[in-house]
């Protein structure tokens, strides 16, 4: 098997805030391992502040980890802007903010080609028309401005712009969260089809487990900068093994018989033991003392001392 397109090895990111004499540090990522192969979608779920978007930034080379390694196509990531031109792309949550309001749609879509010096003007025009058609938009829309389009159309434009350089890797950060239900379904199906055709690797970040398990081949669940559960997308159609994942399933109304709820606790996660130990309804002494590692269990990787009890009786 060929090397994965993107790979993180024990990546750690820390942010500092406050004045120089009283710096406070927040660990955004605490040793993340993941690999995304060609044509594969990795889903990433978790609540806000869990480090989802930071993981996306690290994968795109926008954030350097303080420890660990980032590999792109099997080689260490090159942090020069032009080195990987056109190989990486991102689609963000609010297309009305990620598209320049004063540029025509066609100009916006062609911009990555212009910046990377790809093709002649005529070739770029043809590529834009073909790409707009491919994402389900009339090529005539190239003459419009973003405010003249609907939310779903704008997100299609953002996807067209991300795909125009034929990237090897795309990050979708909350790409469908701001859209209507019926438009969400169209965009999710579009992402699946385009990936099937062009074979890009994708990182699909969302808080919505229902959308993530639908598009992703494998899903990583993050909490407080760590991956707490890692399994194939199909696993998330049944009761998950980690109590935090079950909390997310419950929040998306995907569970038939909900558990005891996770408690809401403000502030930083504890420095010792499991990061969830203050919030988890299943907490035992061991959880407060010892941090659970990510261990294989069934077809899953789970970081929980009590996950074994959640396995369905065989």
């Amino acid at each position: 098997m060929s090397a994965p397109v993107v790979e993180l090895k024990a990546a750690e990111v820390r942010f500092a805030s406050g004045p120089p004499w009283a710096k406070r540090h927040v660990h955004a990522l605490r040793g993340i391992d993941l690999a995304i192969g060609k044509g594969e979608t990795l889903g990433l779920v978790g609540e806000s502040g869990s480090g989802k978007s930071t993981t996306g930034k690290v994968c795109l080379g926008l954030q350097r980890p303080i420890k660990g390694q980032v590999l792109f196509g099997g080689a260490p990531f090159i942090y020069r802007r032009r080195a990987l031109k056109g190989a990486l792309a991102a689609v963000l949550q609010h297309p009305q903010w990620s598209l320049n309001p004063r540029l025509h749609v066609g100009t916006s879509v062609a911009e990555p080609l212009v910046i990377n010096g790809m093709g002649t003007t005529r070739e770029r025009g043809a590529a834009v028309a073909a790409m707009l058609e491919r994402v389900g938009l009339e090529p005539a829309l190239a003459k419009r401005l973003p405010h003249q389009l609907s939310g779903g159309q704008r997100q299609r434009v953002a996807i067209a712009r991300a795909l125009i350089t034929k990237p090897r890797f795309i990050v979708f950060d909350e790409a469908v969260s701001a859209l209507d239900v019926s438009v969400q379904a169209q965009i999710l199906n579009l992402i699946r089809e385009l990936q099937h055709e062009t074979g890009f690797a994708a990182l699909f970040i969302s808080h919505d487990l229902a959308a993530v398990r639908y598009v992703a081949d494998r899903v990583a669940v993050m909490y407080a900068g760590e991956i707490v559960e890692f399994a194939s997308g199909a696993t998330f159609y049944r009761r998950a093994l980690h109590p935090y994942t079950r909390g997310l399933q419950e929040a998306s109304e995907l569970l038939e018989e909900p558990d005891a709820k996770l408690m809401d606790v403000a502030g930083q996660p504890p420095s010792q033991g499991c990061a969830l130990s203050q919030r988890c309804p299943l907490v035992i002494e061991r959880c407060r003392a010892e941090r659970p590692p990510l261990r294989p269990l069934g077809d899953d990787l789970v970081a929980c001392h009590r996950a074994r009890e959640a396995l369905p009786a065989a």
Partner: peptide
């Protein structure tokens, strides 16, 4: 039927 969440494993949601 278009809302993600009610489809089966490997199923497809049907946009309107």
């Amino acid at each position: 039927r278009a809302a993600p969440g009610q489809e089966r494993i490997g199923g497809r949601i049907e946009p309107i």
